[in-house]
């Protein structure tokens, strides 16, 4: 069984989430592990996590989902791949179902664990906005998965990938990009191992300095609750929850967030959850591993200080 992984690059390197997708692919492959990657993605890291062969293509400008889907479908056909893996991202989440249609494949998104082969090809994914999981059997010969962060342990395979150039035919898109505003240099929410989020309990945007300071200390991304982004205290793309970004970091720290069911929907697959809230009855404590009841304005600076002394 050959596996194909689509690689996204950032600053000329494969994104960390793409390396997780490689590790996932390497763990299930019984044949070749092939990566299809833009030519600017350094390939050493790919071999390290288990890629046998890299199909390198040259891009001019940004790819639309339809174009990614066409590149990946052509690569999958050329390599007789039976499993195609994407790391969850906004673009990949859209490209994956398109690839599914092109290849006549079964598609599963939000996959959180390794497949269970004892029952065929069964994957676990979140449903009802994180309130439950389901095991889904993928019936078609080809399977397309988009995997969530932390779905697999990163094991080094120490391979050296063979590089082949690949020239798929890609149709132009009718979508014209007029303007892009993107914060660069920040850790992306979905990529981050640690996320620090603030809620309405922080009273106003002027108090986010201490959240950013804490995040910086932990090398974390910053998030927020929905009302916070609705009131424009923070940008929309930081809003975590059912109607926002769903995260699954190793550590999620919630400050001044009550823990409404819609917020929890976006964080419930985090490994460890810390809640800081002045109300001992805040529902979030029931969904947390560690909690402090107290005033964030008092606790956060002290917490940051204590971390600085330890890390």
């Amino acid at each position: 069984m050959n596996v194909l992984i689509y690689i996204e690059s950032e600053n000329n390197a494969p994104k960390k989430s793409s390396l997780e997708a490689v590790a996932y692919g390497a763990a299930i492959a019984k044949g070749q592990v092939v990566a299809v990657a833009p030519s600017d993605a350094d390939t050493t890291e790919l071999g390290k996590y288990g890629v046998d062969k890299v199909l390198q293509f040259t891009v001019s400008g940004k790819l639309e989902a339809t174009q990614v889907a066409s590149i990946v479908a052509q690569a999958a056909q050329a390599q007789s791949a039976e499993v195609v893996i994407f790391a969850k991202s906004i673009l990949n989440d859209l490209a994956a179902p398109m690839v599914g249609v092109h290849l006549g494949a079964s598609v599963a998104s939000n996959v959180i664990e390794m497949p269970d082969f004892s029952k065929g090809f069964v994957v676990k994914r979140g449903v009802f906005s994180g309130k439950a999981y389901t095991e889904v059997a993928l019936n078609n010969a080809i399977k397309v998965l988009s995997i969530k962060k932390n779905a697999v342990a990163m094991t080094e395979k120490g391979k050296t990938a063979v590089i082949e150039s690949f020239s798929p035919s890609v149709a132009a898109s009718t979508i014209t990009i007029k303007e892009t505003t993107q914060k660069t240099g920040d850790i992306l929410l979905t990529d981050a191992d640690i996320v620090v989020s603030g809620g309405r309990g922080l009273k106003g945007p002027e108090h986010w300095g201490m959240i950013e300071e804490l995040a910086k200390t932990l090398n974390a991304a910053t998030g927020c609750s929905k009302p916070v982004s609705d009131m424009d205290w923070r940008p929309h793309h930081e809003h975590v929850g059912q109607t926002g970004i769903k995260v699954s970091p190793n550590l999620y720290i919630a400050v001044g967030i009550s823990g409404a069911i819609q917020h929890l929907a976006g964080v419930s697959s985090s490994k460890t959850i810390v809640v800081i809230n002045k109300d001992a009855d805040a529902p979030f404590f029931k969904a947390a591993d560690y909690g402090i009841v107290g005033d964030a304005f008092d606790i956060i600076p002290k917490f940051t200080e204590a971390l600085k002394n330890t890390l």
């Binding site: 309130k131 591993d289 917490f303």
Partner: peptide
């Protein structure tokens, strides 16, 4: 039929939140 739900699982509740004193971060 492309995919089929085989079973459901309700996430385990976090066992117990360990409370830490605010004076002892």
């Amino acid at each position: 039929i492309s995919t089929q739900v085989a079973s459901y699982e309700v996430p385990a509740a976090r066992s117990n939140c360990k409370m830490i004193d605010a004076a002892n971060v």
